[in-house]
Design a protein around this nucleic acid. Sequence first.
RNA 1: GGGAGGAUACCGAAGCGGUCAAACGGGGCAGACUGUAAAUCUGCUGGGCAACCUUCGCAGGUUCGAAUCCUGCUCCUCCCA
Length: 357
Amino acid sequence: MALVGGATGMIGDPSGKSKERNLLSEEDLQKNVAGIGEQMRQFLDFETGENSAVLVNNFDWMKNFSYIDFLRDIGKNFPVNVMIAKDSIKNRLDSPAGLSYTEFSYMLLQAFDFVQLNRDYGCELQVGGQDQWGNVTAGIDLGRRMDGKKLFGMTSPLLTKSDGSKMGKTESGTVWLSPEKTSPYNFFQYWVQKVDDADTGKCLRYLTEIPHQEIEAIEAGDPRDAKKALAAHMTELVHGKSGLQKAQAATEIFFGKEVTDAESEALQSIVADVPNAEVQRSALEGDGVNVIDAFVESPLAKSRGEIRRTLEQGGAYVNNVRVTNVDHQITTKDLIGGKMILLRSGKKKYAILNVVG
RNA sequence: GGGAGGAUACCGAAGCGGUCAAACGGGGCAGACUGUAAAUCUGCUGGGCAACCUUCGCAGGUUCGAAUCCUGCUCCUCCCA
């Protein structure tokens, strides 16, 4: 049973947050709810007969509540002294950021969700991340008070790095599940590039369903292979077999040997799955196109100054050959298989310039 | 309602009339070392080849000159009621 927070999303959960959340517009929220629902399909089967997963939206039962009814029916069951004793609230009360009444009320909503799901579906167990502990227990208490039901909760540790910070948040390479936001190739690369050796085992345990014995065997081996295994499992889980294949094909080419005409076929097959841009064939004829212009066309450079710096520092490559001269011209001679040019910034960021016309 | 502070680049935070595209830290990018890891070290980090252009909440004003002073506005925080 997957619950999306169409109602609670309008409030903002203070748990684990150091600042008051910005309220989302109803429109954005609708989009988020729809998007999350879509993504759940990758992980849960909603059409498997009797035992199908269920997707519920708490807006469906919250929308009919009047403020008065809510206070009488739900609020009455929440002793404030218990509420303010919860870490999620206490931490915020102690911090300079404070806490609005709105966020303070969040736990009542989530608690009631649990009760509602118990009533509608016989749901008895709520599972969430560690930061949800307070909200989960609030629901257990509310079930007991309102319906005399015995409900249960389970939380899992949050995924943190070995230094204690949250994973995947601050890095520019924030990963998204949606292939629109993070291509399968980039998703795969995320696990290879951004996970510390020390965190690989933890990720394998938390995020994959590989048996523990196998994980131990993986850990005993080369850490590079461990990360690739992690990347492969995650990519397959999120993007399916075909996504994984494309990601691996691209990885093979980019992080393999020199790129020549021989790889043009393979490159062609992955072009859509890696960052790419188009150039007119005519532009490459004659004197060709300046390297800087070429990079600026690609997603690798945001500004001319940026790529100029990269060039000067020796971080720019055309077809895997380092280019440091800012006046370098790219011409038809540089085309791989007569069709494309491989641009690279730094050690591991690639883009393909696809020739058209 | 009364009072006191504040709003600076991706984030945090200095600057309080010229030498400010703006110290410092974090983050990010690139290089070296490696293993597409971590740690470490180095360089860069508004746009532009440059002249120069656009930035310090918003709108005006003072001044030869404003992130810095004045006026109004918006938003935030705190204290009192």
